[in-house]
Amino acid sequence: MEFLGPYTPLILLIFVASMLIQGHLTRAYRTWGQVRNAHNLTGAEVARLMLDENGLSQVPVQMVPGRLTDHYDPVRKTVNLSEGNFNVPSVSAMAVAAHEVGHAIQDKVRMPALVLRGQMALPLSLGMNLAPLLLLGGIVTQLTGLIWIGAALFGAALLFHLVTLPVEFDASRRALVYLNQRGLNGSAEGQKGARAVLNAAALTYVAGFAMALAQFLNVLALARSSDD
């Protein structure tokens, strides 16, 4: 049985592609981070406005350290914006803030995919810490059962990434619809910038799914070969 698995070259290829996609996101974010949005609103102000107009005035907007660490916390019910977006009136900050509020709206309407992702997050994070150890232990000791357990955990990770795609795409769709309808995008340039930032971010989730798929196929092949 091969130790690396037949899909290792594909994994390496996707890894390189992911780095390129991350670079594309960084460039798009930096480019439109230097362009002020039409109404000179900071990310925090855009988030607050969008939350209030969608019946979520009780949801706070908080600043968190780091770069592109923006996220919505469905447990604490908070919209968290990174330092580079919280106080900056850029097109990038506006787009990212609206995207995170999109998740808050999903939470309000109990979007099934968001609920499922939340239920999977904690147990999967624990399981994925064990998966490589189980896989390695199974290969070294030739215990097929451990390898199949590892494969099952990688399969669960693939499902998580699959569920994440509609959640992220829908949040971006809600963001763009709101910004356009509310006129916050302003000119065609603002609309182009917001779409460019959100599309670049979406590609990172597609790359994450592709990596999870390749890893699962690789581990599945190793598990099957262990039965031979």
Rank of each mutant, 00 (worst) to 15 (best):
T42D: 09
V35F: 03
N54K: 04
A157E: 09
Q119D: 05
A171T: 05
G183W: 08
L153V: 14
G145K: 08
V88G: 03
L130K: 06
L179Y: 02
A93W: 00
G193K: 00
N37T: 06
M111P: 01
K192E: 08
L20I: 13
W32L: 02
G66S: 11
G5S: 05
M111Y: 15
L51W: 03
A207P: 01
E45N: 09
E53T: 15
I105V: 15
T204C: 04
F169L: 11
G102C: 10
F160H: 08
A196D: 05
L165W: 07
V35L: 07
V140D: 10
D73V: 13
A38W: 07
V96Q: 00
L153S: 12
Y72D: 07
I11L: 00
N85T: 12
V96T: 07
V46Q: 08
E100M: 11
F86Q: 04
N129P: 00
L124F: 05
S187P: 04
L134P: 04
D52Y: 06
N54M: 06
A156N: 02
T31D: 09
Y178S: 04
V46G: 07
H24S: 12
G66Q: 11
A171I: 03
P6M: 07
L158V: 05
N37H: 03
L130A: 15
K192F: 01
I149V: 15
M1F: 13
L158W: 02
E168S: 04
E2S: 14
R48Q: 15
G127C: 11
G190R: 02
E2M: 12
L56H: 02
G145S: 14
V64R: 10
T144R: 11
V88H: 12
M1Y: 11
A200T: 05
N80H: 05
E53C: 07
L68M: 14
E168L: 03
L116P: 05
T204G: 08
G155D: 10
A97V: 12
V197N: 01
H103W: 02
L51F: 07
R182F: 02
F154E: 09
F86T: 05
N180K: 13
